[in-house]
Design a binder for these strands. Structure first.
Length: 289
DNA sequence: CGCCAGGGTCTCG
DNA sequence: CGAGACCATGGC
């Protein structure tokens, strides 16, 4: 009945774009790489399949406009990377993660995913998000996959249901947050036009959302590139790389450094550092094998 | 088995 | 403001 139900495909010419680094960097949790090298995931209510070969990416989807908005094909990456500080650590990160890009995710899915993320490993977050989709989302036609549940679907759920999705103590926070948004106490659409500091404080009104998660949402869903999430990896990295492991460097000092040193796209730089640090272990293993 | 994970919140000094 | 306890659970 509607044209959007039709399957479409196109080939995008890309420069400085790595699907692997982008979809495996811990910013989004619903992408899986199949054995033939294709990436498959759920975007809104559609299944998207992407395959990269050198300078182009082949896309198969129902709604190509939604895919374009999500991947931000039009962004010139080299202009962004040029604003990063050119110290040895950033240079190493940029080199090892070349083509890593920030996505533009749906705010609610991003927010809910990161509420689920606290003190969890990325593999587990992926599992929780999948459980949540199967449990509260809608099944996509002709397919075993499920859309990420809407605010209303989660708000209408129960703690027990969310608990069974392996959310643990985060179930309470996710449910309360969904209900606050469903009741209109917080309006995610208002955040687009808010300055970062206001937006951060606004998001922190939600239970289970502190500075780190708020920054993730601002960076990954709202395109606010100055937002700089500091998780355990980044904190360790900043201390070791930029403070020589010195003692008595407070968290506040790290926050100030992260805002002043990395430039207008600091959050983007942060993602390069994060992915670089997190994959060092894998690379070391691979190289010694 | 013990340590750690893309933390937040509350308490106490 | 800062340190510590507590919150559940699974990967390694």
């Amino acid at each position: 009945m509607e044209a959007v139900l039709q399957r479409q495909s196109e080939t995008i010419r890309v420069v400085d774009f790595s699907l692997d680094h982008t979809l495996d960097s811990g910013q989004a949790f619903r992408w899986r790489k199949s054995t033939d090298g294709a990436w498959k995931g759920v975007l809104g209510n559609q299944v998207v399949i992407l395959h990269q070969s050198n300078g182009s990416i082949h896309v198969e989807a129902n709604n190509l406009a939604e895919v374009a908005s999500y991947f931000q094909w039009h962004v010139n990456l080299s202009e962004i990377v040029a604003t990063f500080p050119s110290d040895e650590h950033m240079s190493a990160a940029v080199q090892s993660c070349w083509g890593l890009r920030l996505l533009r995710q749906d705010p609610w899915e991003c927010l809910a995913s990161f509420i689920a993320s606290s003190t969890k490993q990325i593999v587990q977050i992926k599992q929780i998000v999948e459980n949540l989709s199967r449990s509260c989302g809608s099944r996509i036609e002709d397919c075993e996959l499920h859309s990420f549940p809407s605010v209303e679907a989660v708000a209408a759920s129960t703690q027990e249901v969310l608990w069974n999705c392996k959310l643990g103590f985060r179930a309470r926070n996710l449910l309360a947050t969904a209900r606050m948004i469903a009741e209109g106490k917080v309006d995610l659409a208002r955040i687009d036009s808010m300055p970062s500091a206001d937006a951060r404080a606004y998001l922190c009104r939600l239970p289970g959302v502190g500075e780190k998660i708020a920054n993730c949402v601002l960076l990954f869903a709202y395109g606010k590139h100055e937002a700089f999430p500091i998780d355990v990896w980044i904190e360790r990295g900043l201390r070791q790389l930029y403070f020589r492991g010195k003692r008595n460097v407070t968290a506040k000092r790290l926050r100030e450094f992260s805002q002043s040193y990395f430039g207008p796209h600091g959050g983007y730089a942060q993602q390069y550092l994060f992915h670089h640090l997190r994959t060092l272990g894998r690379r070391a293993q691979f190289e010694s094998a």
